[in-house]
Amino acid sequence: MSQRKRESNANELSRRGFLKGAGLGAGAVATGVMTPAETLLAAEKKDEIRGPGELAVTLRVNGRRHRLQVEPRVTLLDALRDRLGVTGPKKVCDHGECGACTVLLDGRPVYACMNLAADVAARNLPVETVENLGTPEHLNTLQQEWVRQDASQCGFCTSGFIMAATALLRDTPHPSPEQVREQLSGNLCRCGTYPKIFAAVEAAARRGPGSA
């Protein structure tokens, strides 16, 4: 269930819910199965030249397929935030320098601001954002430890850090302190909460598998 749906289900007009609802463009949820015609098209590959106007793409985000129209210049980050209402990835530097927009592309952390939505769609790669982890009511282990260790101050970098740490813990359930630092070295926290961030990841790892 998307965060947007959860918020509307809760039947309360939060600031975030209002902003997201008011700003959303079309982002229809499509079915997850290719039609026979689509399968045939995928097999016979031809050169495709589209744009610079909008083109139809399908993004796989958090286990759902979304059909949308984007110009080729639209980044994955802008498509997620402005078109699909997936606002977990934050737009801070927009230059691949801060890590606040970190998402998992085919399971690997990347900067959503440095990927084009059309490119991600063309490669049919799954995108995972913080919305796919715990919910506010049921935080996952890593998120619980983030709270317990007080690892967020302003919190703007948090979702990016959580995604980078999630990829680490899935690949390496018991990382060394050096591995934690290295895997989080592409994320900046301007509040300087690094010691508590590292402590949260290490505490989640100690609690064992399933933490991410």
Partner: peptide
């Protein structure tokens, strides 16, 4: 970013 045409070539 400026607007641009998007090409997905099928071959080198």
């Amino acid at each position: 970013m400026n607007r641009f045409e998007w090409m997905e070539p099928a071959s080198l």
